[in-house]
Simulated scan of single mutants.
Amino acid sequence: MTWFSFHGGHSGSFCAHAKGTLEEVVETAIARGFTHYGLSEHVPRYREQDLFPGEEHLGTEGLIRAFEDYARAAFELQERYADRIELLVGFETEALPPDIWPERMRELRRSYPFDYFVGSMHDIDGRWVDFKPAMTDELKAEFGAEALHVTWFERLADMVRLLKPDVVGHIDLIRKFEPPDFAFSPAALRAAEGLLDAARAAGSALDVNCAPVRNGYGAPYPQLPLLEIACRMGIGVTLGDDSHGPDTVGVGLTASLEAIAKAGFRSVRRLSRGRGWEDIPLDQVRPG
């Protein structure tokens, strides 16, 4: 049996809104039966206006140094724990700064021998979509709800085309603060299909992310209708716990696996350093 996640591994060592140390995250992953575990710390943000509350003392230069420290620590842990777990070292992107983010993300990809990266967005035009409901409501009032959702999927599709990430993170994060029975409009679903087309062309796997289940925001990302479309299109999926500290390592991940099965998939993609991406039958995926 095998158990894995490729979106998460954030820690208080290098992320101000996470908890614990990176080594504690790794040790917890081992204790909870993971055979493979991806570390994908957030990239730096390069403008003062993009700092999260609590990061003011770091500033942009501090975030850059923290990311460099993360990379060095992660590769050291990868080697030190190699006889107990296969750690994959990567990072999670941002579409920031708005005008120059593609080259910034490519520079980070080249800066260390990362095993993979997660292509994610958390903003539209430098305004967060997942930080506070009031901030998302402001965007919704400005764009209109349907247009906001269409814009989200179109921007994420652009990111996938430009960066060709190994994993596309939480593709419907834009619904975070919507009610549990929320459904995207036909126009938004058409835009989502454009994103899925881009993911298929790039060979990217979709992150089936359990954070909404754990945090009380509904079903895993992406919700079932999007997963069903992805299944029909032949797009691979993988597991993501989106952990932000040792306490959340793997928590809720069985809900991701259940959603994958319900959507019609028969396998899930796993990354190994020696063999690359492999399709693992669902009946072989569970904690060790």
Rank of each mutant, 00 (worst) to 15 (best):
E146D: 15
A255S: 15
L22V: 06
L22W: 04
E228Q: 15
P246T: 08
E107F: 05
I171Y: 00
K140M: 13
P53H: 04
L139P: 01
E68I: 04
A205N: 13
Y112F: 08
L139T: 06
P113S: 05
A201K: 14
Q49P: 00
L189I: 15
V249Y: 02
L163P: 02
C15K: 02
G194I: 11
D99I: 06
P220I: 08
E142P: 04
G276K: 13
G126Y: 04
M105P: 01
I174C: 05
R104Y: 10
L77W: 01
Y46D: 05
G252W: 13
Y37R: 02
C210D: 08
G216N: 10
G38N: 04
G218R: 04
R155V: 03
P287T: 07
A187C: 13
R273F: 09
D137V: 09
E79I: 00
L189P: 02
K19M: 08
Y116E: 08
E68K: 10
Y112D: 01
T151I: 02
A183R: 15
F117M: 10
S13T: 12
F14S: 01
T238A: 12
H170S: 11
A191G: 10
R106T: 13
H170T: 11
D283A: 08
E92N: 08
F4N: 02
D181G: 06
A261S: 14
D172C: 04
V268L: 07
R45W: 00
G33W: 04
D241T: 10
L108H: 07
R109A: 15
V129L: 08
D207T: 12
I260H: 01
